[in-house]
Computed example of a mutant assay.
Amino acid sequence: MEVQVPLVDRTDTPTYREYLPADQAVQYLDPAGEPVAATARYPRPTPDRLVEMYRKMVLGRRFDQQATALTKQGRLATYPSSRGQEACQIAAAMCLAPTDWLFPTYRDTVAIAARGLDPVDLLGLLAGDWHCGYDAAAYRTAPQCTPLATQLPHAAGLAHAERRRGRDTVVLALCGDGATSEGDFHEALNFAAVFRAPVVFLVQNNGFAISVPLARQSVAPSLAHKGVGYGIGSEQVDGNDPVAMLAVLDAAVEYARAGRGPVIVEAHTYRIDAHTNADDASRYRDSSEVQTWLARDPLARLETYLRAADLLDDSAVERIRAESETAAATLRERMNADRPTDPDDLFRHVYATATPQLREQAAQVAAELAAESEEIR
């Protein structure tokens, strides 16, 4: 497979061809986990990082399974699973420095957890809390974004601001294929390109914008090609190949940090589960399609590779799985505890100085709660 590195040096004046992604998605492991003869010039991650990536992927998948179960127990209002996209999620977290920023979507809880956030805190939004559940500034992780693509201009703006302050901060903004059909996506790319903002746009192309297949959204050769029109370095990668994902994102972050401008990376992956627990995916896709992608499982792929390279054995696998089970049990126990609520939070953080209408609404709620309490007594 012939692969060229399209990320260009902006000190020159490149032609549009230098912005093009590889003709085929970058791949280092085939679906069975066997190395392929790739000619991509991206440095491969070190063995230690790949073993740690495997550990984080196991923990992430178990977290995702437990969160899905919590919706059935009534502890979460909804949960969008990222099963099958673990390589994208973990690579997105691992390629960043602690001082960098992550801008996630609603489906990126596994990436957020891999940054070290408390799992209970990051599930706060989906549990119905009035805020995102964690201190975004402290963790340099923006609140999970539910509307498609609206976080992307914010990511570009923050990256530009950090560059103006003379900092080497890189921002990684996650989105799905559906987001590339939104105006915010194109505005963010154009702004980032014009101001050479150090932002990496990672498009997790999982095949569907809820029920709308990619073929009904775009006929471009790849979504990564959309960067060419804005003068943005671009690449496409096998999103279920953990080695390729980490290699490409490492290079993209380094490229942006060096002041060469933004990068768009398209990861070809698949959403194994339904859009959320409220969705019936069988209405718009065939089960045989899901089975095809199950055979490309990124976790099994990496485990096969690491075992063959004598970097992983049965005892290590069992130890990591036991760690994931302990983490899931702890999460389950903590999430099954009743969450403290204060109705005044509905009004406390809307305005610095409450408006007359807000005070009136707060008084109305207080009166209703008092009347209800009196009835109970």
Rank of each mutant, 00 (worst) to 15 (best):
D310Q: 12
P119H: 08
W101D: 05
P356L: 09
G231K: 09
A173P: 03
R332N: 14
L299T: 03
E2M: 06
A258F: 04
E374Y: 09
G116T: 05
I112W: 01
I112L: 09
L96S: 01
A97S: 14
V170E: 10
R44M: 11
P153T: 08
E18K: 01
M94D: 09
T13S: 15
H275W: 01
W101A: 04
L117D: 05
E325D: 09
C95W: 05
R55N: 11
V263L: 02
A274N: 01
L50H: 09
G124R: 05
I232T: 10
E325F: 00
R377S: 14
R62S: 08
A93N: 04
A258G: 06
H225Y: 06
E360D: 15
T78I: 15
N206K: 00
Q4C: 03
L346D: 13
L311N: 10
V199G: 01
Y255T: 06
L117P: 11
A308D: 04
R164G: 11
I90G: 03
A77D: 13
D177Q: 02
S373Y: 06
L123Q: 02
A149T: 06
A252D: 10
D279C: 03
T180F: 08
A251K: 09
P198N: 11
R339E: 12
L306D: 07
I210D: 08
A142K: 03
P143V: 03
G239H: 03
Q24P: 04
A93F: 04
D177T: 00
E289A: 06
G227L: 07
A247S: 15
L125W: 14
R271M: 11
A188S: 11
A251W: 01
L102D: 00
P343H: 06
C132A: 12
T146Y: 07
D345V: 14
